[in-house]
Structure formats: C-alpha cells, structure tokens
Design a protein around this nucleic acid. Structure first.
Lengths: 112, 112
DNA sequence: AATCGTTATATTTGCTTAGACATAACGATA
DNA sequence: TATCGTTATGTCTAAGCAAATATAACGATT
C-alpha cells in the first residue's frame, strides 16, 4: 500500500520522438486554444520550446498532426488534424492502460 | 512496424525513489562485484553518484537492501541482502511484462 | 601501530540544457 | 499599404545537474 509505481511512456520513429507526455499536453492545449503561442502560455513553457516540440512531432509523424497558418486573420493559428486528435486519444488510452497494468504488477513488490 | 514504444518505470515511497532502472543496474553490479566502488567503475558512473543512489534506496526501503561494511579485510565492501535480490528480480519481471504489454498496445497507434 | 582499499561526505569545477530576448516573415483585414 | 498577432528562427545568458577532486573515517590483517 505504501509504494507507488510510476511510468513515462513515449513513442519513437527512427530516433526522433513522436509522442510523449509533454508533446501530448501541448497538442491538447493547441486543440483548446487554437494557437501555438496561447498553448505555450497556458502550459507555462516558452514559445520556442513549444514550437520545437510541435515541429519534431510533425516531422516524425506519418501524416500532419497540426495545420499551422502564418499571418492572416488574427495573425494565424494552429489546429489539430483529425489524425492528430486520434493520436492524442490513442496515446491517452495506452497510458491509462499502462498505469492500470502496473498497479496490478506492483503487488509483486508489496508482498516481498 | 516503424514506431517503437518505450517506457521507464520507477517505484516511489513517500516522495523518494525506491527503485528505477539506474538503481537496479547498480544493485546488480554490486551483486556481481561485491563492492560499491567497483560497481560504480563497471557502470562508468562516479562513486559519489553510486553512493547517493544506494543510500536513497536503503533509506526508502522497508528492509535493508545491502549490507555495507567499512574497513577490515579488503577495506570493506557491499553485498545484496536476500530482500535486495528479490527486489531486483521483481523489478526486472515487472519491467519485462510492461514492455510486452506496451508492444501490444502500440498497435492502436500503428493502425491509425 | 602501520597499511590498505573501502565507505562516506564536502567542495568546486565544468557542461549541457533550458530560458530569455530579439527579430524576421507572413497574410487577411481594414 | 499599414496594422496586427501569429508562426518561425537565431543568439546569448543563466541555472541546474553531473563530474572531478579532495579527504576523513573505518577496521581486519600483518
């Protein structure tokens, strides 16, 4: 009962990271705010870091994860593609399943 | 097929880390060499880092994980207790099971 | 009591990484 | 064509963390 088991999972393609917890948080924030800069602010990370993360996600994904537009109405913005939304959903599901799985496994330590 | 899913798991008690991959590597090396300093060398980490890791393990464990002796024949040494050995074994098993579990889950991403 | 290799611990040095700052490019709208 | 808020990118500084260095304490063996 007194121990907690924790995990971090991430998905790589080649040697780039496609998705991890930070990247998924960012994608969710983009979906909520419609803009990369607003998403960065809401997560309290610098715009640059957010941009680098998003760039790396789009570069290692098979299909575009976001559509980014520069200039125009409101200066531009970013929004998730359907593919991006389903990636986020799948990652969350895997993560939740992993936690549940590990919680069961932890018993092997508790009973020692 | 082109994506890989990776994970790191660790076990906490209160807010100290009991076991993680680095700590388990260290425990295995101690078991092999019979000494903390030799274990550190074999893992290419500084003695100080090794000592800090081991100290934190022993502080957060319910029972002693290693027996460390200072001075005496050969200057001293460190060896795993039976409890320590079974902790290492259990952690390895959980880790392997987690990998297998996640490999199956990855299909949810591949088929998007 | 002198030796030896170890555990145990503090201090300082260096390096990688994150953050702050600055600025260019863009295009719809007015 | 001037404005505006955004995306996109470079540079420089700061800070946190890892590594290197130094040294004390220890006790069986000789």
């Amino acid at each position: 009962m007194s121990y907690k088991i924790k995990s971090r999972i991430w998905i790589e393609s080649e040697d780039n990271v496609l998705l991890g917890e930070g990247r998924v948080h960012l994608l969710k924030a983009i979906n909520k705010t419609g803009s990369l800069s607003k998403a960065a602010k809401s997560l309290n990370i610098s715009y640059k870091k957010a941009w680098q993360l998003l760039d790396s996600v789009n570069k290692s994904a098979k299909k575009p994860v976001t559509i980014n537009s520069i200039g125009g109405k409101g200066g531009g913005g970013a929004e998730l593609t359907d593919y991006g939304k389903s990636l986020v959903q799948a990652f969350d599901e895997i993560n939740r399943n992993c936690w549940a799985f590990l919680d069961k496994e932890l018993a092997k330590i508790e009973r020692l």
